[in-house]
Amino acid sequence: MEIDINRLDLEFQAKIDSGKTIEPKDWMPEKYRKTHIRQISQHAHSEIVGMLPEGNWITRAPSLRRKVTLLAKVQDEGGHGLYLYSACETLGISRDELFEQLHSGKAKYSSIFNYPAVTWADMGAVGWLVDGAAIMNQVMLTRTSFGPYARAMVRICKEESFHQRQGFEIMLSLCNGTAVQKHMAQESLNRWWWPSLMMFGPRDEESTHTEQAIKWKIKLKTNDELRQQFVDQTVPQIELLGLELPDPAIKWNEERGHYDFGPINWDEFWRVVGGNGPCNRERLAARKEAWEKGAWVREAALAYAEKQENLREAV
């Protein structure tokens, strides 16, 4: 039996190495299933919790154009959450269990959403930087080994590009506006810069799952590689906006062919991951409230469906 499992494990890895996808009904190691439930649900929760800071600004968008855009973006994020919950459920966990894990704090979501969106410029910075950082990770995941996850990612990536572009457009308008508006953009960039860099996760030497994740193609690049790529692509964009760099240590390194940047405050990172960021409690409370207050709707719809079914059978 022991040998049998080893053989299955080897065959499984060989299948991934050869570029085949793993589908829900295929045999898979228990650890693969568990890791994927954890990662996909965490990703789904991030999409749903991520609706909160932006949803907060829909009623206060400065024009109708901005309002419909923001509304469409927030709806997309809701859709992304739903694609991912569905992908996760194919691994044999129910939607209710997934919500239960979010509400109890057992499951995590991206820490970036534990920061507040306090000015309109934050709608620009979030789309540009936060969606920008998320896209890099998501593009990589379109080639991941688990079929339903990879397919959800393809769909998501198609939709994400407008999120980042609308964010940059907001920043651009503010930077071309009054001194006060430009200052608002600068202040927002300064606040979101570091948390955005933290989105890629701990440094490679502290990241415990990297090797396994690379074997299963959950990761094709390490946290530090993606972070560097993000800095490299974003610095010229900051310059294009005419804003000051949010980190005085940012400097082109000819030898490396990359931008150097200053040290990240990892204490802050772990504090927010640990539940003590500026908005952790508020975000979770909002999700739980929505779930609890929606209970009667879920129950009523089911009761109605059952009644209609009974009526049909009675005829």
Binding site: A72, L82, Y83, S86, A87, R155, A305
Partner: peptide, 23 residues
Amino acid sequence: AGSVHAADAKMALENARDVYTRR
């Protein structure tokens, strides 16, 4: 395209419309 949760067929169609055909 994927899946949705819904109480009945009509709601499933509506949810599918919202989730999978926003564009």
